[in-house]
Design a protein around this nucleic acid. Structure first.
Length: 293
DNA sequence: CCACTAACCTGTAGGC
DNA sequence: TGCCTACAGGTTAGTG
């Protein structure tokens, strides 16, 4: 489900209610998700206060009063929701006839302003996982990540350094979390469309002989930044069941230019192309063969 | 180091 | 309706 904009949307939905909340009790309904929960996970959380939330790439980070960080990755279908708490806007009440079969973790929280509530983690496919660390440098999931795409550390020069000599197609290069952290299958297709780059173009072709970034790589950096910024503003994309923790849904899916639009006309003004779907390393890519090259 | 595949797991959509 | 296949936003582990 979630790429960077969706994870950021989840974080923003959670933050007002979990920051400052004390974790009264933790219930694990099974011993693992994709991986076993870290040893002492439950005991390490109980009794602590969540001091703030952060996001790195597609990871949610809950900072704890002990100084440790609880890390949560949503995989494909992971979602948080609140129970025992009514949001101010009626449209945001959570559906009561929710599927509980895949509720794997329940946290009982006490918040000085919002009172008591339960935070539930649901994940049908269990591709999500969690970790606990004191120091970011010790966390294997964060250690090798590339720059945040919306930070100054991400730019055409940084991509050029990583793309140089790469035979892999641009699609795979952008999906590589060590190059830039947080893009997934949807936003890679959208960013390449905006930069008018074919997903199967070898990444090295976007780097000048000197090793400097080409103009096309500047366009790609712009495309990545703008598509992610717009998607965050739209509350992420709601496919199937994606929901923010407050029950709201994003609407960026209506603004996909190419993703899941095989056979539709290219939205570029004046372009007569038709969106094509190809499979690269087992996953769908969408692009316009007329205006992306 | 690089590139590719399979694996993890469940649900859903579409064809027949 | 049921059965079967293909596919789905993710990452890791294993192979050459």
């Amino acid at each position: 489900m979630p790429e960077l904009p969706e994870v950021e949307t989840v974080r923003r939905g959670l933050d007002p209610y979990v920051s400052g909340a004390r974790i009264e009790a933790v219930t694990l309904n099974r011993a693992d998700l994709r991986f076993p929960f870290p040893a002492g996970f439950r005991a390490a959380l109980e009794g602590l206060t969540i001091t703030r939330t952060d996001r790195r790439a597609k990871y949610l980070l809950f900072r704890l009063s002990s100084g440790a960080t609880w890390l949560s990755h949503l995989g494909m279908t992971g979602a948080y929701r609140f129970e025992g708490f009514r949001f101010k806007e009626p449209s945001r009440y959570y559906e009561p006839e929710e599927d509980r079969k895949h509720d794997h973790i329940v946290l009982e929280l006490g918040h000085p302003e919002h009172g008591r509530m339960k935070l539930v983690y649901n994940d049908a496919r269990r591709f999500g996982f969690m970790d606990l660390f004191e120091d970011e440098a010790d966390c294997p999931y964060l250690r090798d990540l590339g720059p945040e795409p919306l930070s100054n550390a991400f730019n055409a020069a940084a991509m050029a350094a990583r793309f140089r000599g790469k035979a892999a197609p641009a699609k795979a290069a952008l999906l590589d979390q060590r190059v830039v952290a947080g893009l997934g299958n949807i936003y890679v297709s959208e960013a390449l469309y905006r930069a008018r780059i074919r997903p199967d173009l070898p990444a090295a072709r976007l780097v000048l002989k000197s090793g400097a970034a080409s103009r096309r790589l500047e366009d790609l950096a712009d495309g990545v930044r703008t598509v992610l910024t717009e998607a965050i503003e739209a509350g992420g994309s709601t496919l199937r069941d994606f929901r923010a923790a407050d029950g709201g849904s994003g609407y960026f899916q209506h603004r996909f230019a190419v993703y899941d639009r095989e056979g539709e006309p290219c939205p570029t003004p004046g372009c007569r192309g038709v969106i094509q779907r190809i499979v690269q390393s087992g996953r769908s890519s969408f692009f316009c063969p007329a205006c992306q090259h």
